[in-house]
Nucleic acid binder design. Structure first.
Lengths: 245, 245
DNA sequence: AATTCTTTATTGTCAGACATATGACCGGGA
DNA sequence: TCCCGGTCATATGTCTGACAATAAAGAATT
């Protein structure tokens, strides 16, 4: 069967869209194998390089994976949460870097989202979640930790907090937002005093969660947001200068 | 200058990643033109089709656009919020459809996120936001509206609610989540009684926002979440059957 | 000066070929 | 019989060279 294409150029784009729809509709099942490149070329009446460009478009979205060899080919990927998250992080990072989003707006969104999972986290946090958070707090207190490592640990802490809500879809959204903020957070220079302040707030938050004390957790998170905003003040100025340039 | 590539295959993937990093780092400015395919091929010491596959990968992520002709080439795209959102919606839709995420989990995440923007929306909603919400409520009350149209209007209502928070980053996240839920919501069959119930809740929510009454808005949203969950009960059963199949 | 034609640079597509990876198949030996 | 190795078929990955389509810039003409 030959599938027709719009004569208006960009065959590879049209082919990618056709296959994408087949995947989304479930017509091509997960782990199902697509026809070989040669078959697809014959089917769409185009050359193999054109088909390959279409397949690469899909591969860029993690929709398919390819395998070489006799039984190889292109297979429909089950989109894992990890892949989806990696994807969202790159998108969010680009969005923040290319759209003159100021630090305050990004931070406001991030903490608003994080606030959304506090009620669930208070109910569902398990000892292992709390342990993960406490482990990161301990790491944040070690001497000689670079700013970047401190920041990475901060992300890990918040990630654990988000996981405590026990909803993978929510985790996907919020962890993506938090990770995408990391490049911005990396611009902050943490003094010993500001680190101590943050660690204390982290500890308060963890204990509030452990006790299931939602109001206290919310208040602490708000305090953390306010303090981070204060620390980021200089970044805002720097970014503003960059934009005006 | 020749850029070296790892000899381990998938040149097109490596080239795409190299260029992607150059874009993210700001090395290649927005609207900047990439070297021509031939130049890139010479630079990376590969053939033009290989370069083209790399460029198609980037094009699939809306990172670049291409233009034919004498002054044509590949240009760095400014990733718009619309593009990014479309992206996130397809990713989220796939995630929901391919990962046996049950209706309850998805719904819980959606309403948790939406709850996150209520405090901001109470402070910042403008008359135009309220007007948009009221317009959708009116539409939802019209006779002869199909279930799909009702659902689309529901999405538009919630979208307006999210916009009222006045934070584009937050809007991007939450509106994406809400839209991704639409295929699931479309499975619900709305009776006249359930429509009336939903419309009443929408109206309450709008008035609470207009009055800046946060607790009331939160309570109404919770009620809406609970009612939607109730309506979706049959869907859950259907999806469970599909998974077990 | 305005319009039209030509040139030129670039992407889009094609055809055929070779390189490479890998599972399947088959034959021989313990 | 069972295991092992070689061979082969098939598929993706890549290269080469070419032509078509397009759009802007410059040259020629009115």
């Amino acid at each position: 069967m030959k599938t027709k294409l719009d004569s208006a150029g960009d065959y590879s784009k049209q082919i990618a869209q056709t296959i994408r729809e087949a995947i989304i509709s479930g017509d091509l099942p997960v782990d199902g194998r697509l026809p070989s490149e040669g078959d697809l070329a014959a089917r769409f009446n185009v050359s193999r390089p054109t088909v390959r460009e279409a397949l690469k478009r899909l591969a860029a979205q993690n929709l398919i994976r390819t395998q070489r060899g006799a039984t190889g080919g292109a297979f429909v990927n089950r989109l894992s949460f990890e892949d989806a998250q990696e994807h969202m992080v790159t998108t969010a990072t680009l969005l923040l870097s290319m759209n003159t989003v100021d630090f305050e707006t990004a931070l406001e969104a991030r903490f608003a989202l994080e606030r959304a999972c506090l009620p669930l986290a208070c109910q569902r946090r398990t000892p292992s979640h709390l342990a993960a958070m406490r482990a990161e707090i301990a790491r944040q207190g070690t001497d000689g930790l670079s700013d970047e490592d401190f920041c990475a640990s901060d992300v890990a802490f918040h990630r654990a907090l988000v996981e405590a809500a026990g909803n993978p879809v929510l985790s996907w959204h919020i962890a993506g937002a938090v990770e995408a903020m990391q490049p911005l957070m990396n611009m902050i220079t943490y003094t010993a005093r500001s680190r101590a302040q943050i660690i204390a707030l982290h500890a308060d938050l963890t204990e509030a969660l452990a006790a299931g004390a939602l109001p206290q957790a919310q208040a602490t998170l708000d305090a953390l947001a306010a303090y981070t905003l204060e620390l980021g003040g200089e970044i805002r100025a720097r970014r503003a200068a960059k934009i005006a340039r």
